[in-house]
Design a protein around this nucleic acid. Structure first.
Length: 481
RNA sequence: CGGGGCGUAGCGCAGCCCGGUAGCGCGCCUGCUUCGGGAGCAGGAGGUCGCCGGUUCGAGUCCGGCCGCCCCGACCA
C-alpha cells in the first residue's frame, strides 16, 4: 500500500518524477485543451509569492505596472521583420469574432513589444518623458509543439517589462540591472543559483540587439533558462516611430529594453530542490511555512492538543509566518507527515499529549531531522530554522551546480560529458556560429551564455573548443530545456 | 513533425492472445475501534471499457478507421 504511494525516484526517471510531483502535490493539472495547464491553488500560491517579491523589487527600482490588451493586430507583428519571423510560427490568430470574419486578424500576444511600443509612440514626445519604465503581469500564448507542465505550456503567465531610454548606455544599464535583479530574486527567494551572461546570436530574441539570460542547472543536469533581458536597441522604436525631441531640439528614436520571467520559475523551483519524497519549497516562497500536526489518542488528549496547537499557530502567525494546523480527523499523523512532505512544507511541528505535558513541540525539517523545542522559545526557534533552511537550500544548490560544472573543456570532454551526466561545461569559443552549430550537432548542447565576470573561470580558455583557433571569449555549454 | 508507449471506476492496473453476467489495489461514503511515520474490521457508492464503423446470436476482447494523452528526438520563455 505504501509502495503505491511512493513517487518515481528522480534517478529512475526524472521526467516521470517531475510530472508526479506537479500532479500529486496538486500544483497543476492538465486542461481539456492540449498543451494548456490549470494552475491549482497550491501552485498558484507559489506564483503569487513570486509575483509579490518581484513586483516589490520592480517598483522599488522605479517601474510602474500597466496592462496592455491580449489581442494584437496581425500587422503589428509584421512591422519588425526579424520579430515576425521569430514569432509567426508560434502565434494563435483570431480570424472570426462576433459571428463574422474580422477585417484584420488578431494575434493572441506571444509577447507584447509591438502593442506596447505602438502606445509608447503616442506617449513619448520629449526627452523629459524618458525614461519610461513599464511592467505588466499578463498571460501569453505561444503554440508550442511540445509542452510540459510549468516549463513550456501553450498559455503561460509572466511579467514583461518594457522600457524606453534616451540612449544606448541607459538602455544597456537597464537591461543589465534587470538581469542582476532577476539573479538576486532567484538566489534570495528561490534559493536557486544561476549563471548570467550574454546569449549568442542564435539564441538572441527576435528583434533584439543583445539578449541576456539567467541559466539554472536542474537536478537532471539540464539547464533551464529562468529569465531573459533584452537590449532592443532602436529596432522597435524605428518600426513603431517611437521618437522624441532631444534637449538640443533634434528628433531621435528611443532605445528600448524588454525582459521577463514566467510561471516556468515554478518548474525551476521544483527541479532545483525537490527530492524523492516530493516538493521542497524554500521558506520564503512556501505558501505554508509551518504545518502543525496534532496527535491524540483520547478525546481529552484531543481537546488539549488542539488547544495548544492553535495557540502555537497564533503565536507563530503573530511573528509573521504562514502557519496551518492539520486537525483533520480520521487520518493518522504519519499519513499527514507524508502528505505535507510531498507538498513541500518546510517545517512541521508535531504536538502530542507528551509534548503538551512537557511544554514542547517536535520540530521536523523538510530536509531531514527532528528536534524538540520548548514552547517559550518556539517562535524564535522556528523563525531561525526557516532562515537556516532558506540558506541551506541555496548552499546545497550552489554546491550541486559547482560539482556539475567543468572548466576549460576540450571537444572530446564535451562530447563525453554531454553523452553522459551533463552539466555546465565552460570552454573557449571563437565566436563563430559554425563552431557553435557543430558542437550542437555533435553533443546536443548549446551555448547557454557567454558568462558575466562573476562566473568566468579564473584561467581564461585560450582556444575554441570546436576549431582550436584563438578563443575570443569563454562560453558555457549545456543541454537545455 | 518523426520514433516509442498508453487509453477499462477519481488514481494505478489486470482482463484482450483463446468473444459468453467487468475485476483487483488505493482513494471515496457510513459505522465502530484506532491515532507519536502511510490504521483495522464491517457495510456501501462509483463504469456508455477513448470515439465511429464492421464481423458475430453475442465484442472490453477480433477487424478497419479516427481521436486523445504521455515519453524520447527536431523547434522554443
Amino acid at each position: 500500500m505504501s509502495e503505491d504511494q511512493r513517487l518515481t525516484k528522480r534517478s529512475e526517471d526524472f521526467s516521470a518524477w517531475y510530472n508526479e510531483v506537479v500532479l500529486r502535490a496538486e500544483l497543476a493539472d492538465y486542461s481539456p485543451v492540449r498543451g494548456c495547464m490549470v494552475i491549482r491553488p497550491r501552485g498558484y500560491a507559489i506564483w503569487e509569492l513570486m509575483q509579490r517579491a518581484l513586483d516589490d523589487m520592480l517598483k522599488a527600482t522605479g517601474h510602474q505596472n500597466a496592462y496592455f490588451p491580449m489581442l494584437i493586430p496581425e500587422s503589428f507583428l509584421a512591422r519588425e521583420a526579424e520579430h515576425v519571423e521569430g514569432f509567426a510560427p508560434q502565434t494563435a490568430v483570431v480570424t472570426r469574432a462576433g459571428g463574422k470574419e474580422l477585417e484584420e486578424p488578431l494575434v493572441l500576444r506571444p509577447t507584447s513589444e509591438t502593442i506596447i511600443y505602438a502606445m509608447f509612440a503616442k506617449w513619448i514626445q520629449s526627452y523629459r518623458d524618458l525614461p519610461l519604465l513599464i511592467n505588466q503581469w499578463a498571460n501569453i500564448v505561444r503554440w508550442e509543439k511540445r509542452t510540459r507542465l510549468f516549463l513550456r505550456t501553450t498559455e503561460f503567465l509572466w511579467q514583461e517589462g518594457h522600457t524606453a531610454h534616451i540612449n544606448e548606455e541607459e538602455a544597456e544599464t537597464e537591461a543589465r540591472s534587470i538581469l542582476a535583479l532577476y539573479r538576486r530574486f532567484m538566489e534570495e527567494w528561490m534559493a536557486m543559483p544561476v549563471i548570467t551572461g550574454l546569449k549568442t546570436e542564435s539564441e538572441r530574441f527576435a528583434g533584439a540587439l543583445r539578449t541576456y539570460g539567467c541559466e539554472a542547472l536542474m537536478q537532471d543536469n539540464k539547464a533551464l533558462q529562468a529569465g531573459t533581458s533584452h537590449n532592443l536597441g532602436q529596432n522597435f522604436a524605428k518600426a513603431f516611430d517611437v521618437d522624441y525631441q532631444t534637449a538640443a531640439g533634434q528628433m531621435d528614436y528611443v532605445w528600448n529594453t524588454s525582459w521577463g520571467v514566467s510561471t516556468r520559475l515554478v518548474g525551476a523551483l521544483i527541479m532545483t530542490h525537490g527530492d524523492d519524497k516530493g516538493l521542497v519549497l524554500p521558506p520564503r516562497l512556501a505558501p505554508v511555512q509551518v504545518m502543525i500536526v496534532p496527535i491524540w489518542k483520547t478525546d481529552a488528549d484531543r481537546v488539549a492538543v488542539l488547544q495548544v496547537s492553535h495557540r502555537v499557530s497564533e503565536v507563530l502567525r503573530e511573528s509573521g509566518l504562514r502557519v496551518e494546523v492539520d486537525d483533520r480527523d480520521g487520518m493518522k499523523p504519519g499519513a499527514k507527515y507524508y502528505q505535507w512532505e510531498l507538498r513541500g512544507v518546510p517545517v512541521r511541528l508535531e504536538i502530542g499529549p507528551r509534548d503538551v505535558a512537557e511544554g514542547q513541540a517536535i520540530l521536523a525539517r523538510r530536509t531531514g531531522g527532528k528536534v524538540p523545542v520548548k514552547m517559550d522559545e518556539i517562535s524564535e526557534f522556528v523563525n531561525e530554522t526557516l532562515e537556516m533552511l532558506q540558506r541551506s537550500l541555496l548552499d546545497s544548490a550552489k554546491s550541486r551546480q559547482a560539482q556539475n560544472s567543468v572548466r576549460d573543456v576540450t571537444m572530446d570532454q564535451l562530447v563525453e560529458l554531454m553523452a553522459g551526466k551533463g552539466g555546465f561545461a565552460y570552454g573557449g569559443f571563437c565566436g563563430n556560429a559554425a563552431c557553435e552549430q557543430r558542437i550542437k550537432d555533435e553533443t546536443k548542447a548549446t551555448i547557454r551564455v557567454i558568462p558575466d565576470p562573476d562566473f568566468q573561470s579564473e584561467r581564461k580558455p585560450r582556444k575554441c573548443v570546436a576549431c582550436g583557433e584563438a578563443a575570443t571569449t569563454e562560453a558555457v555549454w549545456a543541454k537545455a530545456y
